[in-house]
Amino acid sequence: MATTSKLKTVRLQLPASTDDLAALELGTVVYLSGRIYTAREGVYKRAVEDGAGLPAPPEEMGFANFHCSPAATLHPDGSATVGAVTATASFRFAKWLDGWFKLSRCNIIIGKGGMTGEIYKRHFVPHQAIYLTTVGYGTGALLGRGIKGVAATHWVDELGLAQAIWVLDVENFGPFLVESDMTGASLFERENAKIAPNIDKLYAGSKPATLRRYGETDDKTEEVI
C-alpha cells in the first residue's frame, strides 16, 4: 500500500484520542482501524437543520465521519455488499459542521479536498478535530478492501442508499493524508501558496476574454471554492 513513498506514515486505532491527533503533521499518511460512519448533506440537514438528532448514540456510530456514499447494495435480509468507497467534496458541508460536531462529538472528518483554513479554525479547532483527505480521490478499491463489515445502516428509507448513514468497521483503512492539523492549518493552502508565484507567469501577455462574466476576478491566485 504505497509503501515506496518518502512520506511519514501513522496507523491510528479508533476512536482516536486528542493526543493521537495532536501528534499528526500536515501531509502525514494515515491508516485507520476501528469504527467509522458515512454522513453528508442529507444526514446533516436532517440531524442538524431539521432537528432530528442522531439515529444512534455516537458510541455506536464511532467518532470518525466519512464524507462518502459507498458503491454498495443492501440485501432484503439486511446484509450489505460494499464494493468501492470514495469521498465526496467536503467544502459544501461547512454550514452544518458546528451543529454536527456538537451532536456527534466526532474528532476526525474524512473527505475529499478539505475545507478552508478559516473553517478549520472556526469549527474544527474548538472541537479538537482534524481533517483527513482521501488520496487521488480514486482509491476506492483500496478503501473498499479496508472495510471489514457494515455494523449498521440508518435512514436508508428516508434518505436513499447514497445519503444514508453507513456504520463501518475498518482495518488498515487508507491511505489518507492529514489536510488539517489541530491548529487548523491546511495542507492544500500550503501547497496553493507554493504554486501561486508561477501562475502570474503563465498568464503573462494574455488578455481577458472579450466577453466578461459576472463574478469574474482577475486574481488567479484566488480559489473558486
Binding site: 500500500m1 504505497a2 515506496t4 513513498s5 518518502k6 512520506l7 501531509g27 499518511v29 462518502c68 456514499s69 459507498p70 458503491a71 464494493g83 468501492a84 468507497v85 470514495t86 469521498a87 465526496t88 488520496v135 487521488g136 480521490y137 480514486g138 482509491t139 476506492g140 478499491a141 483500496l142 478503501l143 473498499g144 478492501r145 491511505p175 493524508l177 495542507l187 501547497e191
Partner: peptide, 29 residues
C-alpha cells in the same frame, strides 16, 4: 513532487486492487 508522486503511486496500486477484487476502482462510480 513528493505528495503528487505518492498520490499517483496509490492510484496505480488501487487499479491493481480493483482488478484483483473485481470491485469498482472508485467509490464514486
Amino acid at each position: 513532487g513528493d505528495l503528487s508522486a505518492f498520490v499517483i503511486q496509490a492510484m496505480l496500486e488501487n487499479y491493481e486492487a480493483a482488478k484483483e477484487d473485481r470491485r469498482a476502482m472508485c467509490g464514486d462510480t
